[in-house]
């Protein structure tokens, strides 16, 4: 009996060591970037190599925050995310509710088409979009980008929200109706509060998508004053020629923090708010 207990203890210790190693390995790219960002600009070029910086300095952070328009980039990203979330949720949530609750001619066919379109990566028609946006003179404007983002995210939000509405029993709404609740009260007092986890998760995923989006924004935006964080970071990359790796790391960490915080804030809704991947009919 004691032999078995010792064996289990040893197993647990080994498992813990394994997990500590794995966690460390997983975090290395981030830890290394962080260590570079506080090491100042000259240590990279030296031939000596340290995992931990020899001297700690906030120079890179100060440079990025004062000498580069970081605040501007941040506000631009925020603005673009906010506009996209607003537009996406305003159009997709009512549609999802209607398609979940009502039965009407053309419903099935429309759902089928939306399911097919959900499989279509927007990047495949990027050139066609580019040509259309250029013809409409919307190149280098947020309007164009917000519509592009809202177009692809609306389908995702539609399916996610519809899946969630489907899982809320209609009986609750019927009961409220019998109690004399009118349509508007039904939506604001009953349906929306019930759908809260899914609305939160959908909005956060839209924000993260816009925050991360670099390919459309690098191709479609050209003025430096319009740069978002993603575009700025993209152009800050240290290539083999311009070694501003500490500056880049500092910017990368500052860009990441809001998303990390947001992610861990809503993590508890992750399982309940995502209706099995949002792909189901």
């Amino acid at each position: 009996m004691t032999g078995k207990k010792i064996k289990e203890k040893v197993k647990l210790i080994l498992l813990n060591i394994g997990f500590i190693l794995l966690s460390f390995l997983t975090l290395i790219p981030i830890l290394y970037a962080f260590s570079i960002s506080i090491s100042g600009s000259n240590s990279i070029i030296s031939t000596e190599f340290h995992i931990l910086p020899k001297t700690i300095t906030m120079d890179s952070y100060i440079t990025i925050l004062t000498e580069r328009p970081f605040g501007r980039w941040f506000v631009n990203s925020l603005l673009l995310s906010a506009l996209t979330v607003l537009l996406t949720m305003l159009v997709a949530v009512p549609a999802a509710y209607v398609f979940s609750r009502m039965r009407f001619v053309g419903r099935k066919r429309t759902l089928y088409i939306l399911l097919v379109l959900n499989a279509f990566p927007a990047i495949l028609s990027m050139f066609a979009i580019y040509r259309i946006i250029k013809t409409l003179n919307l190149l280098n404007s947020y309007m164009g980008l917000v519509f592009i983002y809202a177009g692809s995210m609306a389908i995702f939000v539609f399916w996610n929200m519809k899946g969630y509405f489907d899982s809320i029993p209609e009986a609750i709404e019927d009961a409220a109706r019998i109690d004399g609740v009118n349509d508007r009260q039904l939506i604001t007092k009953i349906v929306m509060p019930l759908a809260r986890p899914s609305i939160i998760i959908s909005s956060v995923l839209v924000v993260i998508y816009v925050w991360n989006e670099y390919i459309f924004s690098t191709v479609f935006l050209s003025g430096a004053e319009k740069n978002t964080l993603a575009v700025a970071l993209y152009s800050l990359q240290a290539t083999d020629y311009t070694r501003n790796w500490p500056l880049f790391s500092a910017a990368a960490i500052l860009t990441t923090l809001p998303v990390l915080i947001l992610f861990f804030l809503v993590q508890k809704y992750m399982v309940s708010g995502l209706s099995s991947g949002g792909v189901k009919g």
């Binding site: 925050w211 970071l233 790796w245 990368a252």
Partner: peptide, 15 residues
């Protein structure tokens, strides 16, 4: 939880 494109750039440049 990390923004994917930031992670990819960190891998490319840092690793």
């Amino acid at each position: 939880a990390m923004p994917a494109y930031v992670s990819i750039l960190l891998w490319r440049m840092g690793i």
